[in-house]
Design a protein around this nucleic acid. Sequence first.
DNA 1: GTATATTCCTACTAATTCCATGGGAATACG
DNA 2: CGTATTCCCATGGAATTAGTAGGAATATAC
Lengths: 133, 133
Amino acid sequence: MFSVPTKTQYGIRALVHLARMEGSSAASAEIAKAEGIPPKYLEGILGQLKTAGLVHSERGKNGGYRLARSASDLRMIEIVEALEGEVKPVGCLDDSAVCAQGDCCLPRIFWVGLKGAIDGYLESKTLLDVIES
Amino acid sequence: MFSVPTKTQYGIRALVHLARMEGSSAASAEIAKAEGIPPKYLEGILGQLKTAGLVHSERGKNGGYRLARSASDLRMIEIVEALEGEVKPVGCLDDSAVCAQGDCCLPRIFWVGLKGAIDGYLESKTLLDVIES
DNA sequence: GTATATTCCTACTAATTCCATGGGAATACG
DNA sequence: CGTATTCCCATGGAATTAGTAGGAATATAC
Ligand code: FES
Ligand code: FES
């Protein structure tokens, strides 16, 4: 239950790798080899992280990726949301017209609480916390 | 991200329904109709809940299902685990020989923490809490 | 300016998991 | 016996996830 897609696991491992480079950049293929991630797959993952503004990239020879901010300023929830979208246990979180209960569905309140518990944890941790734990 | 399978949503709705019956039993088809759940699918779900010991059943005419315990003594984590298995964000939670980091993988500590946050919430809530929220 | 290393883009395939449905056997009641 | 119900097993379709493939664009080095 609640298994995390490989995409997110790979993404975090890649960012951990970058965070340890102390500002210098690393090529996608280099990270892939070091971390045991399928190279072509990682390219796409880093692309998503770039779109979200979490990493910067330079192309051409000697190009590569580096963190857009310091690891201490990068919350884990940003990474998760960049790769998989918002935490949303059930589709009806916003949409109250779905369920038999109609207006005030009891289970929904429970799910909202679960989202809060997960979001709270992910917001409380930074990439630096992960590296130094 | 972290979407909950319909099976679990249906299972919880069914248990909420049973909890409101004040001890008397309800047939699977009856619950399915009232809650808008595919009838044949619900049969299987209730079967799992029975195997886990959360509900009792009687078959034959006038048979049906009822809660095995009072709603206040039924933790939500028991329901989730009965239907989907243990909360396990990544496959390598136990198994330390998976990742490139080898022995002490940093991301793993992060995932263990996430499991703790989710489990903590699910353990803190009972079926009665859901009904009375 | 040519060779090379790299990101970037789009499309495709393969594998896995999720979501049910179907048919009927076993059981209980009256 | 007839009916209502749980129970068991197998199957199929849909959706999501995981990974591949090929090559265009761009920067550097010589
Ligand atoms: S609105 Fe989501 S379960 Fe009722
Ligand atoms: S052991 Fe799970 S990511 Fe390293």
